[in-house]
Design a protein around this nucleic acid. Structure first.
Lengths: 200, 200
DNA sequence: CTCCTAACGATACCTTCAGTATCGTTTCTA
DNA sequence: TAGAAACGATACTGAAGGTATCGTTAGGAG
């Protein structure tokens, strides 16, 4: 007893995702209407709403499906070097047009609890978990102090990146990334900080 | 040659500001309608639009006029101690119901260029200027390195606070604030860091 | 091969909400 | 005291997210 009736069109599904990603990335979540997305995908509006419950879920999905792998974690000689490259990657990602998509979703999530949960569970936390592993490896290889609070450390690392993405007039350029990294090492690296006074 | 016609009602002006602040703080920018604000203020909707060009400008004004002074800079024995207290104050402000107002405005600013400029020019930058002065004083008193980039340092300090306000599942509690402060001192304080390697 | 069912595109519609237009009334100033 | 502008009230406009419904189409089950 398989499925009954006409199967859903994968072509329509993909076309909607691609149109949503392209339009929202270029012009922002609020500036793009669902009619426009459906039209750009060459699809009826009802088809869109058969595949996703609302606009926010669609755009969230377009982020995950189409560019979820763009922030893959680099392999480097050492864990601490992987961390450095990961920060660079994240900054480059925010500088790219994809940054507008993240800005849009974070903004929308402030008044959409469901989207907020989805963004945290499906985007933020998986990437934080990747960073956690890098940090654990960096601790294991002796590059970082053993007593750091990993989640708080991640907040420090990525907080300033998101701050500049959402509120900054300045750019997320290389000197800034370098400053973040050096500052992080100063506080958490074994070569820079003493073993007391960070966590009294 | 003074003004002609009936003067504007200061009572109406204040009542609208207070109603907007109260409602948006409690339920968020998007969840509160202009009609509701006007009704709560005991005022016609047109009066509201005679005093402000749009909803965003009104709410931005309510932030500045009614709670613009709540983040006043503390006086402490030393500049570095003032800095510490200022971070505490900012975190407490974000934890309070006022935090919802900031979240709403930052979110709305992502799709409203005019609001984004107003928020930067009238809220963010004045407060950053206050922090700049504290940092300069801390440098002068010998608590911080002389070669730090003050604006980048501010981004690091406040970035993680805004990150937890907008995206965090965790709270902006005292241990987190302490961590931020200690981490900042580790990177920028003269007692913690050596004089090279931060800015190669 | 044929039928049944659900998806399809199209389109009209509903609801909500920010912002506008208008009206008779009120309040201050010249 | 007369005029000009703000006032409260209310009807309206336009845009946008989401729904309802139409006839049509594709494909699996029998």
């Amino acid at each position: 007893m398989g499925t009954i009736g006409r199967p859903r069109s994968q072509e329509a599904h993909d076309a909607i995702l691609k149109a949503a990603l392209r339009l929202v990335t270029k012009r922002g979540f609020r500036a793009v209407g669902v009619n426009e997305i459906a039209a750009a995908a060459g699809v009826g509006k009802m088809t869109l709403y058969r595949h996703w419950p609302n606009k926010a879920a669609l755009v969230m999905d377009s982020l995950l499906v189409l560019i979820g792998s763009e922030t893959a974690f680099p392999e480097a000689g050492s864990a601490i070097e992987s961390l450095r490259q990961q920060i660079d990657l994240q900054a480059a990602f925010f500088r790219s047009p994809r940054g507008n998509l993240i800005r849009s979703l974070v903004a929308e999530a402030q008044s959409d609890l469901e989207l907020a949960c989805a963004f945290r569970d499906r985007w933020l936390n998986p990437r934080r978990e990747g960073v956690r592993e890098i940090l654990r490896a960096a601790i294991a290889e002796g590059s970082l102090r053993r007593d750091i609070d990993i989640d708080t450390a991640i907040d420090l690392l990525y907080g300033s990146l998101y701050y500049r993405l959402l509120l900054g007039s300045d750019t997320l350029d290389e000197p800034f990334v370098d400053h973040i990294y050096q500052q992080f090492l100063a506080g958490h690296g074994v070569l820079y900080a003493s073993d007391e006074e960070i966590r009294p």
